[in-house]
Design a binder for these strands. Structure first.
Length: 561
RNA sequence: GCGCCGCUAGCUCAGCUGGAUAGAGCAACGCCCUUCUAAGGCGUGGGUCAGGGGUUCGAAUCCCUUGCGGCGUGCCA
């Protein structure tokens, strides 16, 4: 809708503004009494040698006769535009009743990497934020028209993996997770914790883990068999959590399969003079002029450091998918790493380097500070989901004493996930956030369940309606118009969210949309009204829009709650 | 040391490329269920937008500076 307004304005103002300029300056006034859109005229004052006040007044005259505008006002340097209600209603209902509302078109192919866990411990709260952002970003880009390939790199080898293996070997007594009915990745994780405890007492324990890594790299049968066994436990546990959480990957990469690759790329770069061999024999990328220092790529003993694997993986992904964009959902602590990665690929002249983008998100911290696995302050992903579901269950039983168990379970899980996902998504994506597990997850106010509840309320009305909806404009009141206008903002918000790659913007919009709906719900009876058919259209439009938004956030809807 | 990021109500956060009186939720207090779901709605109180300079017609937003906090700066991953 904003686009149409811009077009109308541009036909009269072509000598003052380009379309892009108008898009930039045209804003929404702080409240409805000031109009639907406002054009600040201050920037024109110098150019036209007139006061902003006079300019606004002149412009107001120009747009008097536009049929889409019901009123145009000059107020202290602003040109305030009031749209014709009937026109807005028609515009919005025309678009927002469709499943494709807000959908964009582009031929961009985008590879998205997220989650990427180590296989020595189960997924925790940090992974949950990563997955919430990753899954949601994938869906948002898809709705924007991107062809999205979701990928995950499993860090399934290395000293840290050997640590849990070593302590299992020493203390596990051959026990299997099934024997004690434990989720298998948790079982593995417990031995990782056990390792840390042991390493405190035993100074040689770290060295023993390194020894084991050497054996693994040499292909020692016993060690490899242990590695396979424990990784299988880790993966089987991860898969349960992925399923529970509602995420999946189109392509999985494994560090163990690629960690040796990439050396050729570096050596080739050395030959071409892109990289340098230092006095001590290490091969480095000189990034001094970018203010990034010297980055070692191959150690003096010829082995590669971690970033080489990422260089190779970027190359491999391009081989596999020949992408336009490659987005990495990784915490902000790795900003340096991804800046360096992109820069090095650019130095190598890789065609795919410019498409690389780090979606840097903020860390999840506890009120006491950072989560530390060694101190047992890590909030486990499965535990959090199930504990929150338990709380939701209690809330449900307060309301419906005799509900069938299967239905209670279904709803409580949906509510739990909505609560968790929304909480992790709503804070500005790049910002660190504090998560207080003791306060648990709330179900009231600015929360996921509030969104579900709003959707369910709309569904409930529509279930009870026995007449067809009518999309013809009607004399809509203030709360109806507010809702219609809020619905009309969805495409703009989605666009912003895509271009800035910030899913939190959409989460915040979801809340505002529901707030507006709940206000309408309270003010305007639908089924007992002179405009039932029209209000049904509005409720349908809301339900469809919030339905799309919830889906983009990765949140499953409930028809009843 | 150097670099990046953050600081908005008691708490958790919006406020997006500078715009009109700075907004929510939670917590506190008060009101609204014989009317479509009260996991809801309405209201009251609560602010030196960390401090100080500057740019501008206009600054929570941009620049400088101080303070506090976080992260990074490995031949770790």
């Amino acid at each position: 809708m904003k686009n149409k307004i811009i077009q109308i304005l541009h036909t009269e103002l072509a000598d003052l503004f380009t379309i892009d300029n108008l898009r930039k300056v045209l804003e929404t006034p702080p409240n409805d009494e000031m109009g639907d859109f406002a054009l600040p005229c201050f920037s024109l004052a110098k150019q036209l040698r007139k006061s902003p006040k006079l300019i606004a007044e002149d412009l107001a005259d120009k747009f008097k006769e536009i049929k889409e505008f019901s009123k145009v006002e000059a107020v202290s340097g602003y040109l305030n535009i009031f749209l014709d209600n009937d026109w807005i209603i028609k515009q919005v209902l025309e678009q927002s009743l469709s499943k494709t509302y807000g959908q964009g078109h582009t031929s961009t192919k985008t590879v998205l990497e997220y989650c990427s866990p180590n296989t020595n411990k189960p997924l925790h709260l940090g992974h949950l934020r990563n997955m919430a952002i990753g899954e949601s970003t994938a869906r948002i880009l898809q709705h924007g028209g991107h062809d999205v390939i979701k990928t995950c790199i499993f860090n399934d080898r290395g000293v840290h993996i050997c640590k849990s293996m070593l302590s299992y070997q020493d203390f596990g007594k051959g026990q299997e997770p099934e024997e004690i009915a434990m989720k298998s990745d948790h079982f593995v994780g417990d031995y990782y914790v056990k390792f840390a405890q042991e390493a405190k007492k035993n100074a040689n324990y770290e060295a023993k883990a390194l020894e084991m890594l050497e054996k693994w790299e040499a292909g020692n049968q016993e060690v490899v068999a242990l590695w396979e066994k424990m990784n299988k436990w880790a993966f089987s546990g991860f898969n349960e959590t992925f399923k529970l959480f509602g995420t999946s990957f189109d392509k999985e990469y494994y560090e163990s399969k690629i960690f040796k690759n990439g050396k050729e790329i570096i050596l080739d770069g050395l030959e071409k003079g892109i990289f340098k061999k230092r006095q001590d024999g290490a091969i480095i990328a000189d990034l001094e002029k970018d203010g990034l220092g010297e980055k070692v790529l191959l150690r003096s003993n010829g082995t590669s450091v971690y970033i080489v694997q990422d260089i190779y993986l970027a190359y491999l992904k391009n081989q596999d998918f020949s992408y336009d964009k490659s987005i990495y959902v990784v915490g902000n602590e790795q900003e340096y790493h991804f800046t360096v990665l992109k820069r090095i690929l650019q130095m190598l002249g890789a065609s795919y380097a410019d498409g690389i983008q780090h979606l840097s998100y903020g860390m999840v911290e506890l009120p006491e500070g950072k989560m530390k696995s060694r101190e047992g302050t890590v909030v486990d992903a499965d535990d959090l989901i199930m504990n929150t579901a338990q709380l939701a269950k209690e809330e449900i039983l307060k309301r419906y004493e005799n509900m069938e168990t299967s239905e209670v379970d279904k709803r409580s899980l949906a509510i739990s996930l909505a609560a968790i996902k929304y909480q992790l998504l709503k804070t500005e994506t790049s910002k660190n956030m504090i998560f207080n597990p003791k306060e648990a997850i709330r179900f009231e106010g600015d929360t996921g369940p509030y969104l579900l509840y709003s959707y369910a309320r709309a569904s409930s009305i529509l279930r009870k309606a026995d007449i067809a909806l009518n999309t013809n404009p009607w004399p809509a009141n203030a709360s109806e118009m507010k809702l219609i206008k809020k619905i009309s903002k969805f495409p703009e918000v989605l666009n912003d969210s895509i271009h800035k790659l910030i899913p939190s913007m959409l989460a915040n919009f979801a809340y505002e949309l529901c707030q507006t709906f709940n206000h309408f719900f309270h003010e305007c009876p639908v089924l007992k009204s002179d405009y039932t058919a029209q209000r049904l259209a509005l409720v349908t439009s809301f339900r469809n829009t919030i339905g799309i938004v919830l889906n983009l956030l990765g949140i499953d809807k409930l028809e009843e709650m």
